[in-house]
């Protein structure tokens, strides 16, 4: 907060950015303190000493704001990953593992807020509204990984199925998220184990397996009978 107050005097452009940041952190604080959304944008703006239209310049609604907050978890994760020199040398499997570990770390610093939004989501829902922007970013990221994985042959190209890999990985992400949500082990150690196992499983399923050999064999026999 202090920092943003100081920066305000610098440049016009950064002032705009700072107001958005300020709204976001004020919103998070409000939600954490009250356990629910503010009654109205008007009330929220008033508490924070600004007019309603300043809020609307940046966000259409509280829901839209929450979506952006989630998307930023993704941005932060990716920028951390790309800032790590070792990341580029990883295999695709390791990249995804590394993504999860970094992402959970990011979520951890925002755990209360994350739990607040997760508690509002129906656990059966495959694509919760609040995760919409986040999901879009995740799918872009994961599809890059999939392409790379197919190049390195860590991932098999299979007719019909391989176009669904990204959906599968999204479900896996939801699994990890829910596991972490419920995890009570010290330092979330069990989540670490869950990530390790889930990613290994998905890559074993996507990688070359006896089924591919079997399919290949069956095709050969069929074509040559």
């Amino acid at each position: 907060m202090e920092k943003s107050a100081k920066n305000k005097t610098v440049l016009k452009e950064s002032v705009v950015v700072d107001i958005a940041t300020k709204i976001k952190s004020a919103y998070k604080t409000y939600v954490l303190e009250h356990g629910k959304q503010p009654a109205s944008v008007f009330q929220f703006s008033k508490i924070n000493g600004m007019t309603e239209d300043v809020f609307y310049q940046h966000y259409n609604s509280f829901g839209a704001l929450e979506k952006v907050l989630w998307k930023e978890f993704m941005d932060e994760t990716l920028s951390k990953l790309h800032g790590d020199a070792v990341y580029r040398q990883y295999t695709v499997r390791e990249k995804l593992l590394s993504f999860y570990y970094t992402w959970i770390e990011v979520l951890k610093t925002n755990r209360s807020f994350v739990l607040y939004t997760l508690n509002l989501i129906n656990p059966k829902e495959g694509s919760p509204e609040v995760l919409k922007l986040f999901k879009r970013e995740f799918l872009i990221y994961v599809n890059e990984l999939l392409i790379e994985g197919k190049e390195t042959e860590e991932i098999m190209n299979r007719p019909l199925i391989s176009s669904k890999y990204d959906d599968g990985l999204w479900l896996q992400l939801l699994f990890v998220l829910r596991f972490w949500h419920k995890d009570e082990s010290q330092g979330f150690e069990k989540t670490d184990a869950a990530i390790e196992k889930a990613v290994n499983l998905s890559f074993d399923l996507m990688g070359r397996s006896p089924l591919d050999t079997m399919f290949d064999f069956a095709k050969f026999v069929y074509q040559n009978k």
């Binding site: 990883y90 593992l97 570990y101």
Partner: peptide, 13 residues
């Protein structure tokens, strides 16, 4: 053995 990213994570922690 287990994966390297997890080792990195443990170190980070």
């Amino acid at each position: 053995p287990l994966s390297y990213p997890l080792v990195v994570k443990t170190f980070q922690q």
